[in-house]
Design a protein around this nucleic acid. Structure first.
Lengths: 139, 139
DNA sequence: CTTGACTCCGTAGCATGGTACGGACCGTAG
DNA sequence: CTACGGTCCGTACCATGCTACGGAGTCAAG
């Protein structure tokens, strides 16, 4: 086919992924985005998949992963010497991590839901049971 | 009873909650811990419940809540003019927020689990399917 | 060929969430 | 009373994750 993969400039990529242009350069410097090919004039030319990659980064960030952790997730591919078993192991670690987070959030939700439920929504604060439950810790 | 509530110094509190002494002062300045009463010499005297509060803060942080959000959670109590209904509403918002996070983590886990499963653990990286799945986004 | 938008790069600044430091004071054991 | 640790405070510093700035080169429309 004539066009193959239509490449993106930094600005177009930024708009598509809804991040700032500077953020893209920042991610490149910090290994979250691979260095893309350049035009003769030095302009970056991104393959369109980069949009998905940026969206993945954003989602992971919202979930409390650090950029370092996200980079680790992304590096599961493209590390040349890595065996498939290593990748599998690292992915499993991340799964365990994610499951711990989920359980912790579920405990938190349980506390808050109980709280919302026990609160009639009327009366002064002194009778609202929202209080001490909030400080509860691991059982 | 003779002792009632045994009060804690900053250092003891820090050890019990497994945070630094400076962190406690930092949280006080930023409204996450209420200003405790002082001895005549100016030493802080914390009620023992503060340990739970600090542990709650740590847990919430690990889950990706910012200090601002945690403060909001904690302020659901002790805001004098607040009605019970308001508190209830704010708590419900936090529940919704937590549920969004859980769903997002579950999607992430799904992707990774699929990945781990489809990977036999043998062979070179070029045959490991860990790759593109990682970049997947909301469906 | 000019104009305006876009890109490049390096560097600086900002917000968040602490962490460390230094000099002074307190308090208790010997 | 002295020593030694704990505490006080203010300020400075740190890492993370951007965000903005300035000056120069690029490129496409008119």
């Amino acid at each position: 086919m004539r066009n193959g993969t239509a490449r993106l400039t930094t600005g177009r990529l930024a708009r598509l992924a809804d991040v700032g242009v500077e953020t893209i350069r920042f991610y490149e410097r910090h290994g979250l985005l691979p260095e893309p090919p350049r035009t003769p004039a030095g302009y970056r030319e991104y393959p369109p998949e980069t949009v998905r990659r940026l969206r993945f980064i954003r989602r992971a960030k919202e979930l409390g992963f650090t950029l370092r952790e996200i980079r680790e997730l992304l590096e599961l591919r493209m590390t040349p010497g890595t065996t498939c078993a290593e990748i599998r192991g690292r992915a499993q670690e991340k799964v365990d991590d994610i499951e711990r987070r989920i359980r912790s959030l579920e405990r938190m939700r349980g506390t808050l839901v109980q709280l919302v439920r026990s609160c009639r929504g009327r009366g002064p604060i002194s009778e609202c049971p929202v209080l001490d439950a909030l400080e509860e810790d691991e059982p």
